[in-house]
């Protein structure tokens, strides 16, 4: 096992940002960590990179218990590397930035020069070797940061939102590089993203984090709402203060409501059981994910629906078409 986290907690002040009773990550895979902003993804990556100690709990790395206060931490750290969401270049040339990990490991100069050339070629930045690191664009910086990380010859590479702030061209290049890292070098890769499509495209395993905890669903459709009691005594959730959805709830008052994208259904006509809610909206986006099709429907709020490919083919809805989204109670989770 690559990592085992046992009863791990990370607390800042009074706020628990990570609470993971048990989490295991397998070696040699590409693992995606999905979750909304503030879910604790970056904090988890910093713990996995041994940059930030957990407040409590245990981290095991390659079957070894990690002592965050011990002298051996640097040995663990040298097997793992983190590429930050907004990587920063040292105020020197691109070549020297990539050379840095080799220098701190006392690699001989000829080897350093060879590795720098190879890695800059891998990320398509060879011609920038003598350029100042600070003069690169966001996408270029991200690519050089990947080359710099690979210079560490890591066993694990952690990416924090690797394509969040780059253009499409760089996004494609970075995704290609991540694939190559895994394919050619056999390095385990863990990356965070809130892009479901990217996660399903790149990752062999996907984990969902929500409010610092592992979640069973993707929590794609999360909204603020308020549980109210209707005239007939039924409870419903007023989503985003405007959209009433029938719910099974004991409580009344403000809540966070999540709609499981896989449990929602699309139809051309209104079809609902007494306990369901039907919402009319316009289909605004479709994306093929292999076994499933991701549909985005604007029902006053943007709702993502995951349809099995067979079901999608049978329905064949067109972008721009007005459809009905059926929300069964089992698709709703109150958080």
């Amino acid at each position: 096992m690559l990592y085992e986290l046992i009863n791990l907690k990370k607390v800042y002040g009074r706020r628990t940002v990570l609470d993971l009773p048990a989490l295991s990550l397998e070696q040699g895979r590409i693992i995606a960590l999905l979750g909304p902003n503030g879910a604790g993804k970056t904090t988890l990556l910093e713990v996995l990179a041994f940059l930030s100690p957990p407040t409590s709990g245990e981290v095991r790395f390659m079957e070894q218990r990690v002592d965050f206060r011990g002298n051996g931490l640097i040995q663990h750290r040298r097997r793992v590397v983190l590429v930050q969401q907004h990587p920063i270049m040292f105020s020197t040339t691109v070549g020297r930035n990539v050379e840095f990990p080799l220098k701190v490991r006392n690699a001989p100069k000829p080897e350093r020069e060879k590795v720098v050339e190879e890695l800059l070629h891998l990320v398509g930045m060879r011609e920038f070797k003598e350029a100042k690191g600070h003069t690169l664009s966001g996408g270029e910086t991200q690519r050089v940061a990947i080359a710099r990380a690979l210079a560490c010859s890591p066993e694990v590479i952690l990416f924090d939102e690797p394509t969040a702030s780059v253009d499409v061209e760089n996004q494609i290049a970075i995704e290609r590089i991540i694939g190559e890292i895994r394919g050619r070098k056999g390095i385990s890769v863990v990356f965070t993203t809130h892009n479901m499509v990217q996660a399903s495209r790149l990752a062999e395993e996907t984990l969902f984090l929500f409010e610092g905890k592992l979640a069973r669903s993707t929590y794609e459709n999360i909204f603020s709402g308020r549980i109210e009691v209707g005239a007939n005594g039924d409870r419903y959730c007023l989503v985003q203060s405007s959209l009433p959805v029938k719910v099974r709830a004991e409580i009344v008052g403000p809540v966070r409501v999540a709609f499981d994208a896989g449990s929602l259904r699309i139809s051309r006509t209104r079809t609902e059981r007494a306990t369901d809610t039907s919402l009319q909206g316009r289909l605004v986006q479709l994306a093929d994910e292999g076994a499933r099709v991701r549909a985005l429907v604007d029902v006053g709020i943007p709702l993502t629906v995951l349809l099995p490919t067979q079901e999608f083919k049978a329905l064949s809805p067109a972008v721009g078409e007005v459809v009905w989204v059926t929300v069964p109670p089992e698709a709703i989770e109150l958080i």
């Binding site: 940059l51 930050q84 920063i88 040292f90 990990p101 490991r105």
Partner: peptide, 15 residues
């Protein structure tokens, strides 16, 4: 100085 310098140096294996 941006704290990312410290974290970057550490993750790249610097003591």
């Amino acid at each position: 100085i941006d704290d990312r310098y410290r974290k970057t140096a550490m993750t790249l294996g610097a003591g």
